[in-house]
Design a protein around this nucleic acid. Structure first.
Lengths: 196, 196
DNA sequence: AAACGATACGGAACGCTGTTCCGCTTTGGC
DNA sequence: GCCAAAGCGGAACAGCGTTCCGTATCGTTT
């Protein structure tokens, strides 16, 4: 259960009690602020909400990406683990892919600005990008391979491009009632099908 | 030829000569800086490049959107005007749509950060968003309607969503060799086709 | 139990943004 | 040549991320 040795975020062992407590307080505060103000909320807001100084945030989470990852780690893990399951429980690989993509889109769309943050080129976010890729790309690849093997989709697209495309389509989806990211993603996945 | 009365940017008449000259200098400088640093380049950079003070920029272009619009107006107009032409010269409406989308994507992809700026919710960019919509949405609608009338595409998607989707897919396309926005957009447009 | 070194904390301070504002300069009609 | 009006420059302000260091707290050691 002890996840010491993680590269990002929260090593559990060998820390002072108050530090661990603060870390948890910070995670809770960040989660709350992310819901209301999005993942790009000012650092000071999160610090204030947690009742700590700004320096404390940076000690626990050197970059904003580390904080975001720590907050959403569980959900990303769940999404990653759902992939293989869907592959066994779905009638066809393409159906599994569709369902998994739905899961991913739901996750992105419900987190204000997460999709946008994933795309930001500005420094400090490559870690976030890398984490999502590390964790989800293998899953997506496997689903895509399975669908390709069963002849349901045409070749020529790799999982990286698909995931970036999906992520991009989810940008700004939460603020625009006229824009339905799920629909467009569904269209994109439909475009993957073998024409025959 | 005189576009006085435009809501955005540069009215030509009734200005002092030096002001007009500065406006042009500013446009040239902005165009140059946009190429190297993207459309989100610091205002001071543009001012320095043009050899003027920052106040001068804000007098001519109250918001950054106004400046961007002024710089790219010609190309947006060209894109808008190409729509009807393509409809008459292409074999099918869907082919016209494909070509027009290519045009639009090429435009977005070659301008650093333009697609991202179009999506930004932060204040000051709604004008940019609105300009693109005002100018290009009718064109896209007409192409879409023609394709729908000929039975080539399935209904259920409106031009607004399509354009937002295309814009989103173009975000970050210039900095990632592994990401091919054109390909994904093509896939999306392919997903529009009537399955039969 | 008291003292002490290590650890962590808070928030002031810095640098970089956009944006505004006002004293000074330039222009163009008289 | 003169003078109001128009325009200009850049200092000044505000909001952000990030760093840094004096101070407070913790856990261990005597």
């Amino acid at each position: 259960m002890n996840d010491s040795g993680r590269s990002t975020g929260s090593a559990a062992g060998s820390k002072r009690k108050d530090a661990l407590r603060n870390q948890q307080t910070l995670l809770d505060a960040a989660a709350a602020v992310f819901v209301t103000s999005g993942v790009e909320a000012p650092v000071r807001d999160i610090a204030t909400k947690a009742g700590v100084g700004t320096g404390t945030i940076y000690r626990h989470f050197p970059t904003r990406a580390d904080l975001i990852i720590a907050v959403y780690r569980h959900q990303v893990e769940a999404c990653a683990e759902a992939g293989p399951d869907l592959l066994t429980t779905s009638p066809t690989p393409h159906a599994a892919l569709e369902q998994w993509v739905d899961l991913f889109v739901d996750f992105l769309v419900t987190k204000h600005g997460l999709a946008a943050a994933l795309r930001t080129d500005s420094c400090g976010f490559e870690t976030l990008h890398a984490y999502f890729l590390d964790r989800l790309l293998p899953v997506c690849t496997r689903l895509l391979d399975a669908a390709a093997a069963s002849g349901e989709i045409r070749p020529g697209i790799d999982a990286y491009q698909l995931m970036r495309g999906i992520g991009n389509l989810c940008i700004g989806a939460e603020n625009d009632p006229r824009y339905d990211a799920r629909h467009l993603v569904a269209l994109l996945v439909a475009g993957l099908r073998q024409p025959s």
